[in-house]
Design a protein around this nucleic acid. Structure first.
Length: 551
RNA sequence: GGCUCCAUGGUCAAGCGGUCAAGACACCGCCCUUUCACGGCGGUAACCCGGGUUCGAUUCCCGGUGGAGUCACCA
């Protein structure tokens, strides 16, 4: 068979020599040890926590080493394009602090190794495929879907491995004439790799490949024997081929991807070998899984709204908190480092792939929340204020006016109890924060809790009445509290909890119960920061008004 | 089913032949406090099973079991 002739028949329009691309995309001039990484999302628009988790690894590896982190859109599947998806991906990642040095962007392409949309690189892939055909390492296959299904059914009934390989690869050795005839008849075809591997021998003779994974150490598995599709009928490559060509030409040094790619590693190894290129360093990350209702439920990534990045964004988690959480599960020594360096910026941490876990990690919302509290307590009120307003603008537009009308008021609220040695840590995410402070706004104020059981309706009235009568807005905290003590004593409640504890029979309760009554009248709930401070923010008028309403 | 990955408390996770088997979250208790919270102190709780190797295995090897992933002209 004259492979050159075949190559011309198949790709008459391809005239470039592959070497030209080597010249167009030369080795990058980077300092020793600099890593080049990439994120290669497919534009379905759906991006989840797992993607972000991987993106952080890419980003850290590149930026810690003075390398390059770029974005490549893997849009080789025309059935899965979603309108506006690329913008959604970029904006989502940007929101969580992932920024690229080069590649696809809102404005288009930026960088010397583009185009960064695989759909725009057809000619490049075809040039290399043509070369493979010329060398006899790839061939056209005209099998229809039905034929492929038939092959698989047969393999199934014979209990043989499914796939297009060895003796099952029926178009592997078509004659030139037959190929020409089929093409003349307008049959569509794909280009397949002529795999050099074989599993058609005793088990112990099957060759294995051995690859050193950045995270998992040495990986060995049987070599590939599948004649995988390189170029689809539409002339666009499959992921496998696009990955190999792009990561070579874009000079990627580290390929970070999920463990779901592990099974196809042999394919990629064979492809790199037949192209004569050196393998990048693969880093296969563990899958991210999820915890739900206290029961563990492992789930695959796709379509779970709880795992979607948008979910955390709409709940109003702060990007720094999400990043902090992800970093703790990404590198086992991050938390330790954080304890020693409570105020250091996240990027000061030295991230290493060796410290990455390689077993699946359950997503733990409790932990995220806890970390989020720690993160938010360090963010100044004015910044938090802006964050809240920005969040409201997209997710709770009806609140924007409320926030913007009186920013001073919101600032004071957010700052409540957050200064001093032991700041309160009760702010977690925007949605929760609003819930938490909603009683400051009349239109969102509602009675949520009931008075303590040991306080009768009558006592409650008496307490509130006395409170209203003696209330002086100018009182300082001590004066104010002494009055409450007095009221408590007058109504048969211990002025000090210790007294009550000593002689529980002598009292109906203690001053804490009395302040709970006041708290519920004012805030509608039994839990809130310090009452006196809240009153100072609320103002005299509103404070009195609420007490009156409860009478 | 084939192939692959993984396996320490409820969760995340140190450990890399000899440890009373760290720590964090969650949970429980106590203390502090004018209530709530914050904080402090303490507690419950783990090496999947069976064989080896070894003076000695959570750690190394083999085999089970369990969980996960993957077997497309999807990525």
């Amino acid at each position: 068979m004259d492979y050159n002739k075949l190559a011309e028949l198949l790709f008459p329009h391809i005239t470039k020599d592959p070497l030209e691309y080597e010249a167009i995309y030369p080795e990058r001039k980077l300092p020793e040890g600099a890593k080049v990484t990439r994120l290669g999302p497919s534009p379905t628009g759906f991006i989840h926590l797992g993607n972000l988790y991987g993106a952080f690894v890419d980003e850290r590896l590149a930026h810690q080493s003075g390398g390059v982190f770029y974005l490549r859109i893997e849009d080789t599947d025309d059935k899965r394009q979603v309108e506006g998806a690329v913008e959604a991906i970029i904006s989502s990642l940007e929101f969580f602090g992932v920024t690229f040095d080069e590649g696809a962007s809102m404005e288009g392409d930026a960088g010397d190794y583009g185009p960064y949309y695989q759909s725009q690189r057809a000619e490049i892939y075809q040039t290399y495929v043509k070369q493979l055909v010329q060398r006899g390492q790839a061939y056209p296959c005209f099998c229809t879907e039905e034929e492929l299904n038939a092959i698989r059914d047969q393999q199934e009934s014979l209990k043989e491995n499914p796939g297009y390989y060895g003796k099952w690869a029926k178009h592997r050795n078509l004659s030139f004439e037959e190929i020409q005839t089929r093409i003349d008849q307008g049959e569509s075809f794909v280009i397949r790799l002529r795999s050099q591997g074989t599993h058609d021998c005793p088990e112990e003779e099957i060759r294995t490949i051995s690859v050193e994974d950045g995270i998992r150490g040495v990986l060995s598995m049987p070599e590939n024997d599948q004649d995988v599709v390189l170029l689809k009928a539409n002339g666009i490559p499959t992921y496998h081929f696009a990955h190999v060509v792009d990561d070579h030409l874009m000079r990627t040094t580290h390929v970070v991807r999920g463990a779901e790619w592990l099974p196809s590693l042999p394919i990629h190894v064979e492809l790199f070998q037949t192209m004569g290129w050196t393998l990048p360093i693969y880093c296969h990350t563990a899958q991210l899984m999820k915890l739900e209702d206290g029961n563990k439920r492992k789930l695959s990534k796709r379509k779970d709204p709880e795992l979607s990045l948008d979910y955390y964004r709409s709940e109003g988690y702060h990007p720094i908190a999400v990043r902090e959480y992800l970093l703790t599960i990404l590198n086992s020594n991050y938390e330790e480092w954080r304890m020693e360096n409570p105020d250091a910026p996240q990027d000061a941490f030295e991230f290493t792939v060796e410290k990455m876990s390689n077993s699946g990690t359950l997503f733990d919302l409790d932990k995220l929340n806890d970390i989020s509290k720690d993160v938010l307590v360090k963010i100044p009120a004015d910044e938090l204020c802006r964050f809240l307003t920005k969040w409201a603008r997209t997710y709770r537009p009806e609140l924007v006016k409320l926030f913007e009308e009186n920013e001073d008021y919101l600032m004071k609220i957010l700052n409540l109890g957050r200064s001093g040695e032991k700041p309160r840590k009760d702010l977690i995410f925007a949605k929760q924060i609003f819930e938490f402070i909603s009683y400051f706004y009349d239109e969102h104020f509602k009675r949520e809790d009931a008075y303590p059981e040991n306080v009768s309706e009558e006592d409650a009235k008496t307490i509130l009445n006395a409170y209203l009568c003696t209330y002086r807005h100018q009182d300082d905290q001590t004066q104010w509290f002494n009055k409450i003590r007095e009221i408590a004593a007058n109504c048969g409640y211990a002025a000090k909890p210790k007294d009550y504890k000593k002689n529980p029979d002598q009292y109906k309760g203690h001053v804490g119960d009395v302040s709970t009554v006041i708290r519920i009248a004012l805030m509608g709930r039994a839990m809130s920061p310090d009452i006196w401070e809240i009153q100072q923010i609320l103002g005299e008028e509103k404070t009195k008004e609420r007490i009156k309403k409860s009478l």
